[in-house]
């Protein structure tokens, strides 16, 4: 499904709505260039899960955990990793089958480690500033 997201407010609505559907063990992959708003969408998902802590970029830390919501949220940014092997090195692979929800930014970098049937949202720039196109599907 392709969705036109006109502005940040719609990003937030979409994220809040998606959060309602999430169950323990769900993995959400966010793929898109720098600046497309992967972290903004993650913040909305976190808000939808009831996370009260401020979501900050996990680029350097690779994964940040938030436990204040209805489910634990594990926010990954694998931008700095060379591939899925490095994900195993830090034990991150175990989060995917765990008790919470994983949101993985730049998931294409660790594609082989992503469980089958995970949600995948590709984000592209739209035709006007602030606009984004979400291409929503499932990984195989």
């Amino acid at each position: 499904m392709k969705l036109r997201i006109k502005n940040e407010s719609e990003t937030r609505r979409f994220g809040l709505s998606l959060a309602q559907e999430l169950e323990p063990g769900d993995v959400v992959c966010l793929v898109g260039d720098l600046g497309t708003g992967k972290t903004a969408l993650t913040k909305a998902i976190a808000e939808g899960l009831g996370v009260t802590e401020n979501i900050i970029s996990p680029t350097f830390n690779i994964v940040k955990e938030y436990h204040s919501g209805r489910l634990p949220l594990y926010h990954f940014d694998v931008y700095r990793l060379g591939g899925p092997e490095e994900l195993y090195d830090i034990g991150a692979d175990e989060y995917f089958d765990g008790d919470g929800v994983c949101v993985v930014e730049w998931a294409d970098i660790v594609a082989e480690a992503i469980p089958e049937g995970s949600r995948l949202i590709r984000i592209q720039y739209g035709s006007v500033p602030d606009e984004r196109i979400y291409d929503i599907g499932e990984t195989e």
Partner: peptide, 24 residues
């Protein structure tokens, strides 16, 4: 390992490839 060059394989949707872009 399923794919090279870091490509996330996507399940083919049941609908046609040229999908209409929906709005919220």
């Amino acid at each position: 390992k399923k794919l090279e060059a870091h490509e996330l394989g996507v399940k083919k949707s049941k609908k046609a490839e040229e999908e209409e872009i929906m709005e919220l």
